[in-house]
Design a protein around this nucleic acid. Sequence first.
DNA 1: TTAGTATTTCGTCTTAATACGAAATATTGA
DNA 2: TCAATATTTCGTATTAAGACGAAATACTAA
Lengths: 122, 122
Amino acid sequence: MTNSKNDYFCFVISRNDLVTMQTKRKYYTAEQEKLARYAKALSHPVRVFVMDFLANNLDKCCYSGDMAEELPIARSTLSEHLKELKKAGLIQGEINPPYIKYCINREKWDEASKLLGVFFDR
Amino acid sequence: MTNSKNDYFCFVISRNDLVTMQTKRKYYTAEQEKLARYAKALSHPVRVFVMDFLANNLDKCCYSGDMAEELPIARSTLSEHLKELKKAGLIQGEINPPYIKYCINREKWDEASKLLGVFFDR
DNA sequence: TTAGTATTTCGTCTTAATACGAAATATTGA
DNA sequence: TCAATATTTCGTATTAAGACGAAATACTAA
């Protein structure tokens, strides 16, 4: 019997293991993945601007419109950037229609800060 | 005379000002842009892995192949990620054919560290 | 000079990001 | 109830990112 790429095999496997096999093996740590996610959230100047804006403003919260006035981009575009930051957890929006008040999510902000601090501090 | 979007105008303008007008107006600061660039460089887990790898290894430098062995991705893909990190300035490659020894670019690393430190420290 | 080696570049494909305007949403105040 | 308002979602388009294998590169050692 020869070995060939066209040989057939039969075996039993759990659904979970099958999913694991089919899914790309994870070769990086959870920390590395988390850091990459925070970095991605901050990988666009508009989003850095927004975080700066929220961090600097008096009451540390503000409306989408306040930021829209400072930026020469469509309001819908800003909205998508806000969505990205929300997805990453860095901000949260308190709905107060027709306004939405955005704030920094302190918990996640601190987590990102710590992760990056440890990463760079060596 | 009426105002219409189809009115014509004639004016003199320097080449520099023309370029400025044609280019998108910059509404974020140089610092914000720089931070976004570093963040983008770190926005993929493979690139975070690479920086960790370089920072942890004994002599603090290593070959592309050393990292390729740890990662289940094509060597050409790793090479593109290394190119991204080089473009951002975070690493530098000392050519020593057929090997290329990669090291962290301390100067840029420290700059990124400081930028992010200031950004998060509030 | 030639073969071997580590790495990169190139061509190609697929998916994700970014941007806009129009339309939808959800509330307040008339 | 209806209009006004701030914001988001949707549809669509364009550009960028990420992945791979094949081929190119540039050097060493035979």
